[in-house]
Amino acid sequence: MSTTRRLDPVLLLALPATLYIAIVYGLPLLFLMGRSLFGTGGLDSFVGFFADPFSWTVLANTLRSAALVTLVCLVIGYPTALVLARAGGFAQAAILVAIILPLSVGVVVKAFAWQIVLRRDGIVSQAMTGLGLWSEPQRLLFTEAGLVIGAANIFVPFMILPIYAVLKLVDPRLGEAAATLGASPIYRFLKVALPLSLPGIVTGVAFVFSMAASMYVIPSLVIGDRFQTLATLTGRSFLFMRNEQLGSTTAVVLLALTVAVVIASASLSRRLGGAQ
């Protein structure tokens, strides 16, 4: 029995990743935070930011659009993950390819495709008026609805894959056991599959929300300047307004927001799902 506390050599395997993240991500982030907190304005820049009503609009835009994108991804992604986990062999491979392959098409290419779908005489508008759901053709392009549809399209794999990975590990006999105990399919889903897949949901929500809250390219392409989020405002501050103080302030607010959502969803799931 050895009493010396030596470092587990396996931990050394994490060294490249740690160095990489520290240099490429950690240092610049520290620099940014330092500037926002101790820069020319210091804490005053935060006070100023929150005193400005426009900031609250930007904050609301960010939260609302990210939440909607996350919701759409969850509603579309969860059933897909369920089907994917139950499918066998070829069907599973085909669905996986269908989910992953679109990731290789760039956002810019997709954004141009959406223009065809979302404009006033686009497919969606024609279908809705054709079905009588809309009284006259409407433009989805350059609206927040268009943004949510487009962003969800891009982020949905990041919701499906973690949920699928967790569901695949759930013993199918648990559902059968629940059935033989008298549980209806809906009860089985709510009390067995859903709680057991919560870790996957949390991961998916954290992925999609943080990506949707910080997306820059998609809103710029789909809506433009009229719709500002924390991310687009940060980008504009640095790139066009040369206001680095504002940029680092909004960046830190965005970071705090995302971290808070991730932590909150993790603790929520732990409370809902018992000791996972």
Binding site: A177, A178, A179, G182, S184, L196
Partner: peptide, 18 residues
């Protein structure tokens, strides 16, 4: 199965881990 009143004890027990 949920309307049969037939209970099953599975080989791997299939207890609900959560």
């Amino acid at each position: 199965p949920h309307r049969r009143d037939v209970g099953v004890v599975f080989q791997n027990y299939a207890l609900f881990p959560h």
